[in-house]
Design a binder for these strands. Structure first.
Lengths: 210, 210
DNA sequence: GCATGAATTGCGTACCGCGCAATGTGTGCT
DNA sequence: AGCACACATTGCGCGGTACGCAATTCATGC
């Protein structure tokens, strides 16, 4: 949601209850889609099934998501969007590479799983790896998060230039994907370590930047 | 297509005419989809329209592509796949960062446009930027090319490790996307220079590697 | 030529995404 | 409390899509 829309919304001042319901419904739908796909395979999941699991009409499902794939990928996008915020929370003097590593690893802390069951990431990764039909929506969600992270980087390093921030942002998510994929295929060591190592490779070039 | 499948295909030894026809049909369908989408907007393009433009049935279109979006993105994937091959063609002693830069920039050379009209990349980029519905398929195609490039890097730098090659590969395409996007938004200087600059930022960390 | 296997095609089906209008429901004001 | 308004949900309907299946066409190698 753009800053303008957010401002309009704050003017409209929708009460908390209404908005909370929306958020909850969206989350429930995405979660139901994910869980059903994980259990029965994406191809076997029908939209009415998802809607029924949450207790809404199929039409409502399509008010929130334009496809099953998008619903599932939205969960990952929600997680990934936290990286930008985490970077904004890092102390000012911290070197960029350390701040980015810490920010990227935030989402692997158990405490970060708001609403998501423990071990969710593993299941999600497995599902995406198993279902090629999810790749498009997943990558789109990641690209959105990437843009957001680029903005956060640009705020932090104003004289770096737009090119710099976008390259670094895409590198962070690229490294993360590489780390997760590596761990997913080899399963040696912990997931966090694989991602940390991948980030170290990618961020080697920006050691001096603050 | 994997090396194994390629080998099998060479054993099956389908005559050249048949295979050439398939390639041509696939290309024509993708090109027609792209051209129609560029002219009338993706939302206005219907599958029968694309099929008719090429002179095949709609069913045949779906034998080649599962959606309009995939057909269009296939063109970009075809181009991107050339990066891996270009890297394999670079001289052995060349440092990795130089080799990768040269390989990535190969596809911007006018000579590289096999079958694609001049200025195609600009039009394609504009279309993708204008049509969010294309992002998923486009990113999926890029991810495929990324895997291929990672393989090429691993062949070139065997002791780098799988993590290294994947991170670097995703960085190359990430930098390229950042460069293209930057140029697409600012239009100052040439596209090639923007991509070269983006690659320089991303590849700064692997200066010494051969 | 002719057998063979692959590619194309027509048809049928299940399903999807969304526009539209009607209905339900939380919210703020009086 | 009651009321009016805005927004969310829902049912309906339609155009369109993806794909399985079986029939047909067509290039290929003998």
């Amino acid at each position: 949601m753009c800053a303008y829309c957010r401002a309009v919304e704050s003017l409209t001042a929708a009460g908390p209850r209404r908005e909370w319901n929306k958020r909850q419904t969206r989350f429930d739908l995405a979660m139901a889609a994910f869980e059903l796909a994980r259990r029965h395979g994406l191809g076997a999941v029908r939209v009415p099934q998802i809607a029924e699991a949450v207790g809404v009409s199929t039409r409502t499902f399509n008010n929130y998501f334009s496809s099953r794939e998008q619903a599932i990928a939205w969960l990952a996008g929600r997680r990934a969007a936290a990286v930008g915020d985490a970077l904004r929370d890092r102390p000012d003097g911290e070197p960029l590479d350390r701040a980015l590593t810490a920010a990227a690893l935030t989402q692997y802390r158990p405490a970060a799983q708001d609403g998501l069951p423990a071990g969710w990431l593993r299941d999600f990764r497995d599902l995406v790896a198993r279902e090629p039909a999810l790749h498009g929506a997943y990558l789109t969600a990641m690209a959105d998060a990437e843009r957001d992270l680029a903005t956060a980087i640009a705020e932090r390093v104003p004289d770096g230039g737009q090119l710099f921030s976008q390259v670094v942002a895409s590198m962070v998510f690229g490294a993360e994907r590489a780390g997760v994929r590596y761990w997913s295929e080899h399963r040696d060591g912990t997931l966090v370590d694989a991602v940390r190592q991948a980030l170290a490779v990618g961020l080697a070039g920006i050691g001096g930047v603050r």
